[in-house]
């Protein structure tokens, strides 16, 4: 788990470079809440606290959720989200190893459904520390400094009847953040913390589905290369879909699982009402994991 947190550094750095201090504040807040909630619950359940905290799983959940939500979201948003993720996503199922859903994404989904406005207001430029503190803790209006993400804007524009030729498809900031997570993910693969199946299949799924749509009508649908560098694609492929507990566990199953998440991400982004599709795609496929695992058992020696 610790390795995974280290691998996130590049992506977080890129985030800081473009949008300022918010991401660090969210992470610190999220981790503090995660440790507090996890300890409380372990105490209630009469489980030893220290080994559970030191395995880093709660911290990882908190970090992943903190970098998924807007860096200028009000403080109570992350507190709510992390508490929900730890309590409902993990502890109520019996703690580490027993949760059928990815806790971070469960928290994210909960926040997105409950607070859609706060969840889709992102910083649009670099914010200094005092500015960020002000925005997060005083909820001061930030209209001048914020807006929807590029992906969100694209969707709105396309929905308004514009074609892909008329709108800006790129976002430098998003591209660099995705590149950061990609490099971090490759590091994890080299260190064999994660296996190649899920990320590769995930990206394949995104490319295949986006290509099909784009080839059918390139003016209405975002081209595949832009899908890869926008939104949470790389974060999802390398850090979120690869959560071993809620992912499929057979080699073949991992390919199916990753691929279908990729396909769902594009479908939700294109036809759904939410700014990004990674969280719901992952949660949907989490439900399908027992089925996938059952039907993709490898052939046992001698049978």
């Amino acid at each position: 788990m610790r390795q995974v947190i280290y691998a996130l550094v590049l992506g977080i750095g890129a985030h800081y470079y473009f949008f300022g201090w918010g991401v660090f504040l969210q992470i610190v807040l999220a981790v503090a809440v995660a440790i507090a909630v996890e300890s409380t619950f372990l105490r209630i359940r009469k489980f030893p606290i220290k080994p559970a905290i030191s395995d880093g799983s709660a911290i990882l959940t908190a970090v992943l959720l903190a970098i998924s939500i807007p860096s200028i979201a009000p403080w109570w948003l992350v507190v709510l989200g992390v508490s929900f993720a730890i309590v409902f996503g993990k502890q109520l199922y019996g703690g580490l190893g027993n949760n059928p859903f990815n806790p971070a994404m469960l928290g994210y989904g909960f926040l997105l459904i409950s607070y859609p406005l706060q969840m889709s207001t992102w910083a649009s430029e670099f914010l200094s520390l005092p500015q960020t503190l002000n925005v997060i803790f005083n909820s001061s209006p930030v209209d001048a400094l914020s807006g929807a993400t590029r992906l969100d804007t694209l969707k709105t524009q396309l929905a308004l009847g514009k074609t892909t030729d008329e709108i800006e498809l790129y976002s430098v900031a998003q591209m660099w953040i995705n590149a950061g997570f990609l490099l971090g993910g490759l590091y994890l693969m080299i260190r064999q913390v994660i296996m190649w199946h899920i990320p590769t299949a995930f990206i394949m799924g995104v490319v295949v589905m986006a290509s099909i749509l784009s080839l059918s009508n390139h003016q209405f649908y975002i081209p595949p290369q832009n899908h890869l560098i926008l939104g949470a694609t790389m974060l999802g492929a390398f850090f979120i879909a690869t959560d071993p507990i809620s992912a499929s566990t057979t080699p073949k199953g991992r390919l199916i699982y990753g691929f279908l998440i990729g396909v769902l991400v594009v479908i939700i982004r294109t036809f759904g009402g939410y700014p990004d599709g990674v969280a719901f795609a992952v949660l949907l496929m989490n439900i399908a994991v027992p089925l996938i695992d059952y039907y993709t058992q490898p052939r046992v020696f001698g049978q």
């Binding site: 395995d55 580490l96 190893g97 992912a247 566990t249 991992r254 490898p298 046992v300």
Partner: peptide, 23 residues
Amino acid sequence: KTQGCIRCGQCNLVCPVNLLPQQ
């Protein structure tokens, strides 16, 4: 000390008879 299974799948990679020990 043992910890909970996180279904990482290391075990099915080394199983010589291709079982899924984690499952």
